[in-house]
Design a protein around this nucleic acid. Structure first.
Lengths: 203, 203
DNA sequence: CCGACCATGTAATATGTTACATGATTGT
DNA sequence: ACAATCATGTAACATATTACATGGTCGG
């Protein structure tokens, strides 16, 4: 269901093409939803057929067709209805920790590699999200600027607070994962070392 | 792909029935993977046909059929191969924060409700995970005990460390979400109050 | 003219959710 | 007898991933 609202939300800042959405959602970099073009284009047609968005065909150059979609009033209502609902939390799925609890037959080295990959992943993610947040707050994101332009002074502050909160929250999450993996590596080393010592003592 | 390994992992502590798996994975309480029985039973048959698990039919009472599955050597290899691989991170999807960034047309009250629901959700989750971790570390989880029984003294410490890390990490994540939402509510209140004041001053 | 990128589509497959379905056992 | 729980299944639908496919534009 969320793809629908990711699209409506994106278009609520201003009109855009399917390809624009693909840029945001494919590769999924730093955003809060991900989808590939093969999901996006059909979904756009579905939303249009339901009257939530409206598309107009334009031509780039000689004959390259391009559809520009914008939110209809009905679509804006639908989006507002969704955002004012309480969040629905999906079942917890955590493949990395699932992997971890069953890795106890692999010896400390494989586990160390796992934790190091975890660290690296979330360091990278933290950096990307931080950059994105900074760009938004310093006015360097044109879609967010469009969004702000349509609002009153008071509304603008709220919009920016929410962006700050959302990206900041993601960063905090990354920080928590980094702190966790760092501590985990230290504990793993202590355990491996204690065992090495115990084995040496016994000889 | 992970359902497969969730099942293999579960069975790596000892044999069990499809229903046992349903208990762990449906409702998905506190574990790191979730699935409903309509996914689990077909997957068990698939794993059996691939020789990764072996099932024997037993009868409970007069005629209630029940299949008990256990891991084959091939299944254990498959699990080990998976757990020693580097984790693969799936695209980030965060419906709650997606909802939040587009909630700026809803006024502070709806946002406050959203954040309060977030708080409540992660407080509940934290409590459940904490309980589960305590039970495991104090020897009150019989599946984990079975797993420990099959290991050497050194192996036991590693198994327990990994469980502690995994559940502890989940708790830390919940803590981060709680801290985030608490701070977010405070900042929202400050903003709403500042605006109320500004409006009152203007009158 | 060629490579990078723009722009959109379909099909096959995998995964996940909800609903429909059946029957047995156990404890009260 | 009745309810709760054990035990397993199928079908329909929704969502997500991967692969296959096509053609245009723009800058060097």
């Amino acid at each position: 269901m969320s793809l629908r609202y990711a699209i409506l939300g994106y278009l609520s800042s201003g009109s855009g093409s399917g390809y624009d959405l693909v840029q945001q959602l494919d590769g999924g970099l730093g955003w809060f939803w991900a989808a590939s073009h093969s999901q996006i284009y059909p979904e756009l047609r579905r939303l249009e057929s339901q009257g939530l968005i409206a598309g107009t065909s334009t031509t780039v150059g000689e004959r390259l067709e391009k559809r520009i979609y914008s939110l209809t009033d009905q679509g804006a209502d639908e989006l507002r209805a969704w955002t004012s609902k309480a969040p629905e939390y999906r079942p917890n799925r955590d493949p990395e920790r699932l992997q971890l609890i069953f890795a106890d037959d692999n010896g400390p080295d494989a586990i160390r590699r796992h934790l190091e990959a975890h660290l690296e992943h979330f360091r990278g993610r933290r950096a990307q999200v931080a950059e994105m947040r900074d760009r938004i707050l310093s006015g360097g994101n044109s879609r967010v600027q469009q969004r702000l332009d349509a609002k009153s002074e008071a509304g603008r502050e709220l919009t920016l607070l929410l962006r700050d909160l959302a990206y900041g929250g993601d960063m905090q999450r990354a920080d928590a994962e980094i702190a966790w993996a760092t501590d985990a590596l230290a504990r793993l080393d202590r355990l491996a070392h204690a065992e090495g010592t115990a084995r040496a003592d016994a000889e």
